[in-house]
Design a protein around this nucleic acid. Structure first.
Length: 352
DNA sequence: GTGTCTTTAGGCATCCGATT
DNA sequence: AATCGGATGCCTAAAGACAC
């Protein structure tokens, strides 16, 4: 991020952006003294800077919403963008909606035919943390809600699959030989792991420097007796509705994030890191109902239409992600598109 | 009863650690 | 350094649940 290298207090670090996004979601628009609260949450930033930053963000969003900025062609080969906005696969029944993942070559082994099964996109640490949050809130089994409100970058199927392996992993904690895994993260707390950001499964990153390299992988699991609350298939605390009280992590580590409201793809609780966080409150979503032609009513036709609708849904989600990207990321995107000057990026001013 | 959606079980590709 | 076996992670198909 070039922004980090720039000078002066107006420069927003990634950390500050994350905090800013968190604060935006924490303090809704109608909250009194909203900007004061947000400014208080973001260290090193004044009230004016907060407001200005927000306006810039809204500007960006407006530009995107108005269609001035084409959707980026995020390629997952870029390890620097683990948010991989293009990962919104349908995950359903053979991926009828085509090549949603087809460009995720995952690097080197490109000799396979097109017919090979998609290799998928590794879960990022942040996604996994969001998953844990969702698991804590909605309990085991409500993958749909977890997907919708927490791990919005994954479909319920993907969440369920991830959970499946996660619990299996948890259940096998007594085994000696285990590689480090994203499933070792059993808490959303920050001190849990020291793994780098981004995909840490090692599948897409290859030799991830932190999580999966070296002999440190032999370290014992963090919860030898099983994490409280996240037992295999049905400990009491998971799977039961959790009240409106403060979130408690699945393994007892307090969660510092606010519980996201039940908003389909609206304002969500953000998550620090690469997974896009809060949708900017107040930003025009411009996602009105789409109309779908329905010329025929044969089953096949309807199926197809349903598929298109779903695809639109996925696109909306994807769009949401773009909206929620941190300012930096957006600017990078703009820069990649040749829509703005990198120098201007460093000043947080996007020139379109 | 039919169609759609969700969840689960299994398969396959890849990666890692141990061994030679 | 090369090889092998096991572990991991994602995807897909099938079964179950639900809505119309």
């Amino acid at each position: 991020m070039t922004v980090d290298e720039a000078d002066c207090s107006s420069v927003w670090t990634r950390e500050q952006d994350k905090t800013f996004e968190n604060a935006l979601a924490t303090h809704p628009e109608d909250s009194p003294d909203r900007w004061e609260k947000i400014a208080a949450d973001v260290p090193g930033k004044t009230l004016e800077e907060i407001k200005e930053h927000y306006e810039l963000l809204v500007e960006d969003v407006n530009q995107i919403e108005s269609g001035c900025v084409p959707l980026p062609n995020y390629t997952t080969s870029s390890e620097g963008s683990p948010s991989h906005a293009g990962n919104e696969g349908t995950g359903k029944k053979g991926g009828h909606f085509g090549h949603y993942n087809s460009e995720s070559n995952h690097g080197s082994k490109g000799s396979r035919s097109d017919q090979e099964r998609r290799k998928g996109i590794a879960w990022t640490e942040d996604e996994h943390r969001l998953f844990l949050l969702g698991l804590d809130k909605y309990g085991k089994g409500d993958w749909r809600s977890i997907s919708r409100n927490f791990v919005v970058t994954r479909t319920p199927t993907q969440v369920a699959s991830h959970a499946q392996k996660y619990f299996i992993r948890l259940n096998s904690m007594n085994k000696d030989r285990r590689r480090s895994s994203i499933h070792d993260i059993t808490s959303v707390g920050s001190g849990d792991i020291a793994a780098p950001q981004g995909p840490i499964t090692g599948q897409t990153n290859g030799t991830a420097p932190g999580a999966s390299s070296g002999k440190s992988t032999k370290q014992p699991p963090q919860h030898p007796t099983g994490p409280p609350g996240v037992g295999m298939y049905g400990p009491p605390s998971i799977g039961q509705p959790i009240g409106g009280g403060p979130l408690v992590s699945a393994v007892g580590t307090p969660v510092n994030l606010p519980a996201p409201a039940h908003m389909a793809y609206g304002i969500r609780a953000p998550m620090p890191g690469t997974v896009p966080g809060a949708v900017v409150p107040g930003a025009p979503m411009n996602m009105g109902p789409m109309t779908y032609p329905m010329p025929h009513t044969t089953a096949h036709r309807l199926k197809k239409i349903a598929g298109i609708r779903k695809l639109h849904c996925q696109l909306k989600k994807l769009h949401c992600h773009i909206l929620t990207e941190s300012l930096e990321k957006k600017k990078c995107h703009y820069a990649a598109l040749g829509l703005c000057d990198c120098k201007d990026v460093s000043t947080n001013k996007v020139i379109l």
